[in-house]
Amino acid sequence: MTFRLEARGLTCERDDRRLFQALDLDVEPGEILRVEGPNGSGKTTLLKILSGQLTDYEGELRWCGQSMRKVRTAFLANLLYLGHAPGIKAALTALENLAWYQALCGEHGDEVERLAVLEEIGLYGFEDVPVAQLSAGQQRRVALARLNLTQRPLWVLDEPFTAIDKQGVARLEQRLLAHARAGGSVILTTHHELAPLGELRRITLGRAVCNRSGE
């Protein structure tokens, strides 16, 4: 897959406070970009800008060399965004939530596939339980199951490791790494200390510095 997300001169203010300014970044296939910074530095805001949810900013976004305003539909067709909240329907079961996710993305899928994903993420036996009755970690796993179901090259993930246990953390780390090595890209925020990876880069808000892991 070939794609490129570019940001040039991004500047954003909230409540008369400048979160970041003149921020440049590039995301290409095979990369994992971790957005760092203290609470209130604008990490979630930046992710929402990069995923096309916020337009109140200065600067330019480009997708595959073209202005985001001109190719927004094509960009969204290549994007999978997971916010800080699980974003699941409490009254639906885990299995029904996955079917709902796929329908939102215009995908049909099938129940066999969805059951296999639930087993893979450690929710075998919970497929028919309303997610309101699941633990916070189990609910997070239901949301993260989208990474296994929806084939999109660019993932934008806000605190994806929240509430999951050690086994779930290891599984998610491997999933992110496999996605990058298959040619996809990940932009994420997390308080979890990721293992040093060749695919990992970091950008720290407040300093507008972007370095490769280990530099």
Score class of each variant (00 low, 15 high):
residue 45 T to W: 02
residue 46 L to C: 06
residue 47 L to W: 05
residue 48 K to C: 02
residue 48 K to N: 11
residue 48 K to P: 01
residue 50 L to N: 03
residue 51 S to H: 00
residue 51 S to T: 01
residue 52 G to D: 08
residue 52 G to N: 07
residue 53 Q to F: 13
residue 53 Q to E: 12
residue 54 L to Y: 02
residue 55 T to P: 00
residue 56 D to R: 05
residue 56 D to T: 06
residue 57 Y to S: 03
residue 57 Y to Q: 04
residue 58 E to H: 11
residue 59 G to P: 07
residue 60 E to D: 15
residue 60 E to S: 15
residue 61 L to S: 09
residue 61 L to D: 11
residue 61 L to P: 06
residue 61 L to I: 12
residue 62 R to G: 05
residue 62 R to M: 12
residue 62 R to N: 09
residue 62 R to V: 04
residue 63 W to R: 02
residue 65 G to D: 03
residue 65 G to V: 00
residue 68 M to S: 10
residue 69 R to V: 10
residue 69 R to I: 03
residue 69 R to A: 15
residue 70 K to S: 15
residue 70 K to C: 10
residue 71 V to E: 11
residue 72 R to V: 07
residue 72 R to C: 04
residue 73 T to W: 13
residue 73 T to H: 14
residue 73 T to C: 08
residue 73 T to V: 14
residue 74 A to G: 01
residue 74 A to R: 09
residue 75 F to V: 03
residue 75 F to C: 02
residue 76 L to P: 02
residue 76 L to Y: 13
residue 77 A to Q: 15
residue 78 N to A: 11
residue 79 L to Y: 02
residue 80 L to C: 05
residue 81 Y to F: 15
residue 82 L to R: 07
residue 83 G to I: 08
residue 84 H to T: 06
residue 85 A to W: 09
residue 86 P to C: 10
residue 88 I to P: 05
residue 89 K to A: 11
residue 90 A to F: 06
residue 90 A to M: 13
residue 90 A to Q: 13
residue 96 E to P: 04
residue 97 N to C: 12
residue 97 N to P: 12
residue 97 N to I: 09
residue 98 L to P: 08
residue 98 L to V: 11
residue 98 L to W: 09
residue 98 L to Q: 10
residue 99 A to W: 01
residue 101 Y to C: 00
residue 101 Y to Q: 05
residue 101 Y to F: 15
residue 102 Q to I: 00
residue 102 Q to F: 00
residue 102 Q to G: 05
residue 103 A to I: 00
residue 104 L to D: 02
residue 104 L to W: 08
residue 105 C to L: 01
residue 106 G to S: 12
residue 106 G to N: 12
residue 107 E to N: 07
residue 107 E to V: 13
residue 108 H to P: 01
residue 110 D to K: 11
residue 110 D to W: 03
residue 110 D to N: 15
residue 112 V to P: 00
residue 112 V to A: 15
residue 113 E to R: 15
residue 113 E to H: 12
residue 115 L to I: 02
residue 116 A to V: 00
residue 116 A to K: 06
residue 117 V to P: 06
residue 118 L to C: 10
residue 120 E to M: 00
residue 121 I to G: 06
residue 122 G to L: 02
residue 123 L to G: 12
residue 124 Y to S: 14
residue 124 Y to L: 13
residue 127 E to H: 11
residue 128 D to K: 13
residue 129 V to T: 15
residue 130 P to E: 12
residue 131 V to W: 09
residue 132 A to G: 14
residue 132 A to C: 07
residue 132 A to R: 15
residue 133 Q to H: 14
residue 134 L to W: 04
residue 134 L to P: 08
residue 134 L to Y: 06
residue 134 L to N: 09
residue 135 S to G: 08
residue 135 S to Y: 09
residue 135 S to M: 05
residue 136 A to M: 13
residue 136 A to T: 03
residue 137 G to R: 07
residue 138 Q to R: 04
residue 139 Q to F: 10
residue 139 Q to R: 15
residue 139 Q to Y: 11
